[in-house]
Amino acid sequence: MEINENSVQKTRKPNQLLLYAIILIFSIALASICFHKQHRIKELAMSFYSFPDPVYGLAEKDSAELVRQLLASEKRIAGLKRKIENFAPNQPYLIVNTTTNTFVLRTRDKIIREGLCSTGSYTQLDAGEDLQWIFKTPKGMFRIQSKLKRPLWVKPDWAFIEEGLPVPPKNHPDRYQYGTLGDYALSLGQGYLIHGTLYQRFLGQPVTHGCIRLGDDDLKEVFFKLNEGSKVYIF
């Protein structure tokens, strides 16, 4: 009999250990799932709470006083709205979206014209020997510095490097090109222009070296509507 009991105990022991191990593994796994799904647990916990609404505390005040406060607040709102509206320029201004490559020419009250444009390609041209250019359109608020009819393009170094051509010296005749920039150009400063393009099919795409290209008719309207000092917002 003794021999039999011992043999039963020997066979049961590992089973029980296995069961304890399984319980432990399940508990750890459950705790780990709970930790990973903590935001759900918090959402559930939040169901048991509520925040006091201050409306009732405020409503205990004198009604006449509340009306006075409400009128004063509405008056301040009207004043603030006027102040904010005054930020918009009186003259027509241009907004350029460099992500969708679109523009809006507008006044404070209405849109004059909207359409496609081309802006910086975000290409980094690497010519080695620390020669690098990033072709992106700057963002922010700019003012029209000058306006040009039949603008002349003075090709910068990168234009030659990009075409695999040797870079000519400054003022070399190869650097001057008429017609490439279209009929009109508006300067934003630091070499950035709003100009026309020979590549009308690329309008709406980010393909420029930083300038803003417009279609012929759009450029004409923008050129004649904007004056020196007019604002251009680029984002």
């Binding site: 006091p52 409306v55 009732y56 405020l58 409503a59 205990e60 009604s63 406060q69 409400l70 509405e74």
Partner: peptide, 25 residues
């Protein structure tokens, strides 16, 4: 800031609506 229960009278429906408008404004 506005803790309820400071006044002995309970607020009327109109004053609650007014308070809501004030907070919104």
């Amino acid at each position: 800031v506005y803790q309820p229960g400071n006044s002995p009278n309970s607020p009327t429906h109109a004053s609650i609506e007014l308070a809501r408008q004030l907070i919104k404004s």
